[in-house]
Nucleic acid binder design. Structure first.
Lengths: 247, 247
DNA sequence: CGTCGTTTTGATGAGCCTCAAGGTGTGTGG
DNA sequence: CCACACACCTTGAGGCTCATCAAAACGACG
């Protein structure tokens, strides 16, 4: 398994061979988690970091009456802090959307890592900032994009994020979540997601079949979605989705 | 002007007298900004921190066709990083919603501060995490709360955040933004906000007149909004809005 | 006293939800 | 190997929430 974490962090700035080595060492044993199960966290060191190496996960919150909102997607290569706060109860949950392979960097190891390598320190810091930025963009999507724009925007974002860790091929990537999950992420019902998907297909912009997403017209999709990848904050400038697909 | 920043940070953990003193020193000269003007940032040290001491501001993003989404509110006592990223262009803007008084802590001063005081370091860290949590909650609001729930939730959140910095009196606080701003924050039109406001008033839950918000039934409002203040992550446990009002 | 930003009201229609049922695919057990 | 179950996707009909457009009332301020 080529390490998606390294690929990810590299997009925020250069890493030395030593950095890569240290990072590989710090990643402890891998753990398998089944789809549709919460990734629970035993009493957790706030400095520790978990990483999804394979599969998709999400953060979600649930209202008392059962309504669920997926507030972010966690893709291969994404580190995530499982602990929102030291003394507080968890205010949201993390859940595997597909079978997931996790690695865990202990708090002490993490501290060593960032102390030894300014590059890694910087990269992790940027990761945090980029996540905040993505969260803001989701707020924008839910606040002022229409149904079809939201869906198109999510496809653009996911494709771009997967491209960065080398998980796209031509204009295709894996897209293994259900329409129900999409609905919970985009603030709509699965029925309506289904209809909107058909519109996108009819417009010749994408196909989504058998957990595979293909972008037939990345630029058109980005235009429809008002997608501007700047908010992803990768330093290497991949100006547009088209470039990602062409590469 | 009693310092709302100190009051805010104290809610994340205890501060010593020395902490308070250092912090007061670090806050440089104050700056006035007129309402409805962007708070622009000259080439900015990424470690620097700005603080709103008085007035309300917001972060917003705008789509190419003009649609605006307010992604967060910045209230008195809220520190905010003006720099999303060092080398990147700004991916969102910060704007004064009312006349605002700002203070600025230079990067070097900030570094001294956190190096000298573990308390302050911890408090600022928690502030960052709390902000991320608030952003997630906004995602939930936009994704799965109805119009009236959204509005009620925002009122609860704002009241709780203002209570923490001592800016509420009985069950009343200042609420100086227009229905248009509310609309841009909650992903609706001002027309519909207006009608929803009337519903809240008719239900006897609030009054909002002359920039003053009064909660007549905080518990009822919280119930309607599915408001659970845990996501604000103040360490002192003010279990519910009611307690805030009664105090 | 007039101007301008803000709030309020009305009428109409689009977007999305709800409920309900039928279709498709995949894995499982007999 | 077939039959069944179950999860997921798809389709239809009807209704509610909210947007849009337009205009009137209100209020603060010069």
């Amino acid at each position: 398994m080529p390490d998606p974490l390294v690929r990810k962090l590299q997009r925020y700035g250069p890493l030395s061979d030593a950095d890569r080595l240290w990072l590989a060492e710090a990643l402890g044993t891998r753990r398998q988690v089944a789809a549709r199960t919460d990734i629970v966290v035993e009493g957790e060191d706030p400095r520790a970091v978990n990483v999804v190496l394979d599969g998709w996960a999400c953060r979600y919150k649930q209202l008392a009456d059962g309504r669920r909102q997926i507030v972010s997607l966690i893709l291969p290569g994404d580190p995530y802090d499982s602990n929102p706060f030291l003394h507080d109860r968890m205010d949201h949950a993390v859940c595997a959307l597909t079978p997931v392979i996790l690695a865990h960097v202990r708090g002490s190891a993490m501290q060593d890592l960032t102390a030894r390598s300014p590059n890694l320190n910087e990269a992790f810091h940027r990761e945090t900032l980029a996540n905040a930025s993505i969260q803001r963009e989701w707020t924008v999507s839910l606040g002022c994009r229409t149904g079809i724009e939201r869906l198109a925007h999510l496809f653009c974002e996911v494709f771009a994020r997967l491209a960065v860790v080398g998980l796209t091929k031509d204009s295709t990537c894996s897209f293994p979540i259900t329409q129900n999950d999409l609905a919970d992420a985009l603030g709509q019902t699965s029925v309506h997601i289904n209809r909107t998907l058909q519109d996108l297909r009819a417009a010749g912009l994408i196909t989504l079949r058998g957990r595979q997403l293909t972008l037939h017209d990345p630029d058109g999709l980005a235009r429809l979605a008002y997608f501007d990848p700047a908010y992803l904050h990768f330093t290497v400038d991949e100006a547009d989705l088209g470039a990602l697909v062409r590469e």
